[in-house]
């Protein structure tokens, strides 16, 4: 039963990792940009949530009403102001600029919030659980997983069923020809980053409720998100959810064997998939 429990808990944890990954996957899909500062932006959302909670007294989940639009606005401004200038055939500029951004964000957090770990208090929901066939399932992890499924379904809908998603795919296919359709790719990229950071806002708040975070917490979140994307297969959002679940389950099983093995087991699962299925389990885009 312990093992079943570990697998179930890991699956629910995978929902959080899928949320880390969804924004990363979206950005890569639309503009082939890999954002090294993605994890730090998740942590930024957590700090913003903390600030909102402390100043307004709102429940952390309600703070999303403020944090989501703020993060989306930051995303649009970041893309139009800086990142659009880095896009081209050379992979170095986006990589190094987002890497610089990551270092800046971490030190801004240090300056603004000190190095002490912080956490958001979500009240009773944090400890509430339901019993199911001998397993005790936390409400918060269940909610997180449900939100992850909802977010991915929502992104999938936007991508394949709306004019905005059509524009995303068109720009992703061929930037020049998309411009001929009257699409301003700079604006479309800005919208994509805004959407990605809106998702990141959700991920950051859920992270900040679930565990404590500090200014350097972003690196690990970037890596988890990245691993989920690669395990699932590039360009496949549902695959990303599966990737997150595999990562989460590997971690909880690793922790079950030895607490020191939790993170290592996740990385090893990733490297194993990379070794046997270099394109991930459900690849969609090639190249």
């Amino acid at each position: 039963m312990d093992w079943v429990n570990a697998i179930v808990q890991g699956t629910l944890l995978g929902g959080l990792y899928a949320l880390f990954a969804a924004g990363l996957s979206l950005i890569f899909g639309v503009m082939r940009l890999v954002n090294i500062a993605h994890g730090d932006l998740i942590v930024l959302a957590a700090y913003l949530g903390l600030t909102v909670v402390v100043t307004t007294g709102l429940h952390p989940l309600l703070a999303l009403i403020i944090v989501i639009p703020v993060m989306a606005a930051i995303g649009y401004a970041l893309q139009r102001g800086i990142l659009n200038q880095t896009l081209g055939d050379d992979i170095l500029p986006p990589l190094l600029v987002t890497f610089g951004l990551s270092v800046i964000l971490q030190n801004v957090f240090l300056e603004g919030y000190t190095a002490d770990p912080q956490k958001m208090d979500a009240g009773a929901i944090e400890t509430a659980s339901i019993s199911l066939g001998g397993l005790s399932l936390g409400i918060l992890p269940l909610l997180t997983f449900a939100i992850a499924v909802g977010v991915i379904a929502g992104l999938q809908f936007i991508f394949y069923r709306t004019p905005l998603g059509r524009s995303f795919r068109a720009v992703s296919d061929n930037q020049d020809i998309a411009q001929l359709m009257g699409l301003n790719k700079r604006h479309i990229f800005g919208l994509a980053m805004a959407l990605a950071l809106a998702v990141t806002a959700i991920a950051g708040i859920l992270l900040g409720i679930r565990t404590s975070f500090d200014p350097t917490a972003g690196g690990a979140r970037l890596i988890y998100g990245f691993e989920a994307v690669i395990i699932g297969g590039l360009g496949n959002l549902w695959g990303t959810l599966v990737g997150g679940v595999i990562l989460g389950v590997a971690q909880t099983i690793g922790a079950k064997i030895d607490p020191g093995w939790q993170l290592l087991a996740g990385h090893i699962a990733f490297l194993f998939v990379l070794a046997v299925r270099p394109n991930g389990l459900f690849p969609r885009v090639s190249g």
Partner: peptide
Amino acid sequence: IALVPEGRQLFPSLSVEENLLIGGRL
């Protein structure tokens, strides 16, 4: 001003109808 580009250059991830709709987005 609209261009029908050399080599057609349709959007491969869009359906026929979506290719037409994106042309009409203006």
